[in-house]
């Protein structure tokens, strides 16, 4: 009983339950859901698809988790993803040898470097100018799409470069590259923030920036670091998305991905009020979202309804997290306990 209560009270309990329910629905609708087979030396199966398609969202969500932990938000990730894809594609298109590894390496590094600059810009607006994070990143969210359009000159840039395409749809030891990249980003973030005091500092900034500054935490530097890291993650995701289709589309690359990332973080139990975060929760959250999308396909609901489902999920999660609901629940529990106590007294 005690163990059960502790499991139910765990932060990850409800997200995991949600994931398991989705898995169960899938298994009923499609019995071969869990089978993973090896074809041509690659892993195949619905689970692998979920991991692969969910990788960009997960990568961005990892960056977003740290931003939200400082009581911030980054709405510009979609635009940054579009910019990085546009930069990489235009460099590859402009070079005489689009298929060479060196060209792709240069394109990817330049795209990542530019994302660092964009991240520093966001950090500057939030940490130095003190603009609210929603508005500060809203500026880059719109202006960024304009910049991406400028880079691609308003066209969809299609590249024919095997090494670049490998980034999106390649396999390494049978595992999709995108999944490996996501795992590396996730592992690094978890290692750096949880095995050092960095994570605690980030949380302290989220609780009270001024108090943590007076306690000797360099709040401003941390904010810079967090927004830069988030932009960097967004750029990686943008490169994967672009490489997947081998085309940079300034308007549609990473469209609404900021919402998916925020959703993943919220489902994972990280409070939007900051001061507390769980990277493992974000991982589960990202899997829930991708599984939800897959479920919509396997169950046979028209895929266009996915957004309505996501809206419903985010609403329910927000309502569950709300203090009003918690109060109502505890009041209900107290009344139950009271009634139970009376029952004991009567008998």
């Amino acid at each position: 009983m005690n163990v059960l209560a502790r499991v139910v009270a765990h932060r990850l309990f409800w997200p995991v339950v949600m994931l398991l329910v989705l898995f169960a629905i899938n298994l009923i609708a499609f019995p071969g859901f869990f089978t993973v087979s090896v074809r041509d030396g690659h892993l195949f199966g619905s689970l692998i698809d979920i991991l692969r398609n969910g990788a960009p969202t997960l990568i961005i969500a990892v960056g977003m988790t740290l931003v939200i932990a400082t009581r911030g938000i980054d709405l510009s990730v979609g635009a940054i993803a579009a910019i990085s894809g546009a930069v990489a594609c235009s460099i590859i298109l402009g070079s005489p040898t689009p298929g060479s590894l060196a060209t792709v390496a240069v394109a990817v590094s330049v795209a990542l470097l530019i994302s660092l600059v964009l991240g520093v810009w966001n950090g500057f607006l939030v940490a130095v100018l003190g603009i609210q994070p929603i508005i500060a990143t809203l500026i880059l969210m719109t202006a960024g799409r304009g910049v991406a359009m400028l880079i691609t000159e308003g066209q969809i840039l299609t590249v024919n470069s095997p090494p670049f395409k490998f980034l999106g749809s390649g396999f390494w030891f049978g595992v999709p590259i995108a999944v490996i990249i996501a795992a590396v980003v996730f592992g690094l973030a978890a290692l750096i923030t949880r095995r050092t005091a960095l994570g605690m500092f980030i949380e302290s900034v989220g609780i009270n920036p001024e108090a943590s500054r007076q306690a000797g935490v360099r709040a401003r530097g941390l904010l810079f670091a967090v927004y830069t890291f988030c932009a960097f993650c967004a750029a990686i995701a943008g490169l994967i998305l672009t490489a997947n289709t081998a085309a940079a589309d300034a308007n549609n690359t990473g469209l609404f991905i900021e919402l998916d990332a925020i959703l993943a973080v919220v489902i994972g139990g990280t409070s939007l009020a900051g001061g507390r975060y769980s990277l493992l929760g974000t991982l589960v959250g990202a899997l829930v979202i991708q599984t939800l999308v897959t479920t919509v396909y396997t169950v046979g609901i028209p895929p266009i309804a996915t957004m309505v489902f996501k809206a419903a999920v985010v609403t329910v999660v927000c309502l569950l997290q709300s203090p009003t609901t918690a109060e109502a629940f505890s009041g209900f529990r107290r009344r139950l306990a009271l009634r139970a106590g009376k029952g004991v007294a009567a008998s």
């Binding site: 938000i73 919402l259 309804a305 996501k310 809206a311 985010v314």
Partner: peptide, 21 residues
């Protein structure tokens, strides 16, 4: 429910776009 305005309206945005589709 004390949900932050931007997240509540973000959900509404999702809902409205989804209904469009």
């Amino acid at each position: 429910f004390k949900v932050q305005p931007f997240i509540a309206t973000l959900a509404a945005m999702f809902l409205a776009r989804g209904l469009c589709y």
